[in-house]
C-alpha cells in the first residue's frame, strides 16, 4: 500500500476536454491509497503549478490529448523551477507520439504513459518513487 501522505494532483491542462483518462487515473490512484486532487478541465500551466504548491502535492499528473504536449509539459516544468518547486514530480499521458517522449523527458518530465498503458504501470511507477 502506498504511503497515505503522498498527495497527487491530476490536472487537465489546456483546452482539451477529453477527461476519461484523467478521471480513470485519479480513481485508480485514490483506490491505491494516494490522496488525489483533480483540477477539472482547462487549467493553465500557471493554475496547475499554483494548485500544486498550495495543495502541497508530491507529484502532478497531467493528461493531454490535443497535441499541445510540446508546449504544456515544458511550461509546467519551467514554472515549477521559477517557484522553487522542482521537487514536485511531473508525469503524464495522452496521445503523445513516441518521437516526442525523449524531448519531454529531457525537459524534466519524469514519465510519460501512452494509450494502452496498464494502470499497474502507473501505480508501480509512483510506488517506486515513493517507496521509502
Amino acid at each position: 500500500m502506498a504511503d497515505k501522505k503522498i498527495r497527487i494532483l491530476i490536472a487537465k491542462p489546456g483546452l482539451d476536454g477529453h477527461d476519461r483518462g484523467a478521471k480513470v487515473i485519479a480513481r485508480t490512484l485514490r483506490d491505491a491509497g494516494y490522496e488525489v486532487i483533480y483540477t477539472g478541465l482547462r487549467q493553465s500551466p500557471e493554475q496547475i503549478v499554483a494548485a500544486a504548491i498550495s495543495e502541497d502535492v508530491n507529484a502532478i499528473g497531467i493528461s493531454v490529448l490535443s497535441g499541445a504536449h510540446g508546449y504544456l509539459f515544458p511550461r509546467i516544468i519551467e514554472l515549477l523551477k521559477e517557484q522553487n518547486a522542482s521537487d514536485i514530480l511531473l508525469f503524464g499521458g495522452g496521445i503523445i507520439p513516441d518521437d516526442d517522449i525523449p524531448g519531454l523527458k529531457e525537459a524534466g518530465v519524469a514519465e510519460i504513459f501512452t494509450p494502452g498503458a496498464p494502470l499497474a504501470d502507473i501505480t508501480n511507477f509512483l510506488r517506486s518513487r515513493y517507496a521509502s
Partner: peptide, 22 residues
C-alpha cells in the same frame, strides 16, 4: 481546433499551443 471550439481567437493567450492541433 480547440480555440475555435471554445470561442478564442488564435492570438488569445489561452490558445497557445493549441492552434490547428485537433
Amino acid at each position: 481546433d480547440l480555440p475555435t471550439q471554445i470561442g478564442y481567437d488564435s492570438d488569445d493567450p489561452l490558445a497557445t499551443g493549441e492552434i490547428g492541433r485537433v
